[in-house]
Amino acid sequence: MYDFTADPALTEHERYRQLMAAADALTAGEPDSIANMANLAALLWEFVPRLNWAGFYRVIDGELVLGPFAGRPACIRIPFGQGVCGAAAASGETQLVEDVHAFPGHIACDAASRSELVVPVIRNGAVVAVIDLDSPEPARFEQADAQGIEALAALLAERI
């Protein structure tokens, strides 16, 4: 049985350190990418406060396709280059957006989302998925969040 619970009193650095340890424990040796993404979406929901969506989009046939997530129903397919997720997939770079309504071409899957952090998962030089975090708070995400999720994406690159 797993019991990964985030302590709300943790510092940002310590929270992401514990998230990484939990992610490693859950995914090490498990070959099923969907199972790993499902567990990771649950961990993100547990460890990262003030979210309204946490999950994955997978690269399939040149577009992003909805993967495991926690939150409200979401857009199923996103073309590369469209919205925050599509921008991260097309550029291979993290997108930290303080106000999604000011982002050109933002795709509003959930009207409650105000800020977003999207980190590409890169394997052998190619984006294979993106980790998407949405918050109902403007400017919710900071560089510490981006760095923590980038470390998680690096860990997961060979596991999803």
Rank of each mutant, 00 (worst) to 15 (best):
V127D: 10
A102I: 00
A157I: 07
L10P: 00
R50F: 03
E93L: 08
I34A: 13
Y16R: 01
Q147I: 05
R114Y: 02
H106M: 04
L51W: 06
T27I: 00
G67N: 07
A154K: 10
A151G: 04
A70L: 03
C85N: 11
T94W: 07
P49G: 04
A21Y: 03
M20Q: 14
P73W: 13
P120D: 09
S135R: 00
I160V: 15
A23E: 06
A70P: 00
G92A: 12
R114W: 02
A22M: 00
Q18M: 13
G71M: 10
R140L: 04
L133F: 09
I149K: 04
L155N: 03
A28G: 06
S91E: 13
R123F: 08
V84P: 10
N124L: 08
L51N: 14
L64Y: 06
G29V: 04
V48H: 07
F141K: 07
I107P: 10
L152C: 02
F103K: 03
A146N: 03
D7S: 11
G29E: 00
R123C: 04
P136Y: 11
R72A: 14
G148F: 00
V100S: 04
A88V: 12
N36L: 06
E137K: 04
L43V: 09
L51I: 03
A87F: 07
H13L: 05
D110S: 11
L26A: 06
R159M: 03
F47R: 02
R15C: 01
Q18H: 09
L44D: 03
I122P: 11
V48M: 01
G92C: 12
A6T: 01
L117W: 05
T11I: 00
R77A: 14
L133M: 12
Q82G: 05
A151L: 12
R72C: 12
L19H: 03
S113Y: 06
A70M: 12
A154G: 08
D99E: 06
R50S: 01
P68G: 02
L43S: 01
I149V: 14
E116P: 08
E142S: 11
L66W: 14
Y2M: 09
I131E: 08
H106N: 06
F69S: 13
V121Y: 10
A129Q: 10
A41S: 15
A87Y: 08
R77G: 09
Y57K: 13
A87E: 15
N36R: 09
S115F: 04
E137L: 07
Y57P: 14
I160T: 15
Q82S: 11
F80E: 09
I160G: 13
Y57R: 14
C85R: 10
M20G: 14
V118I: 12
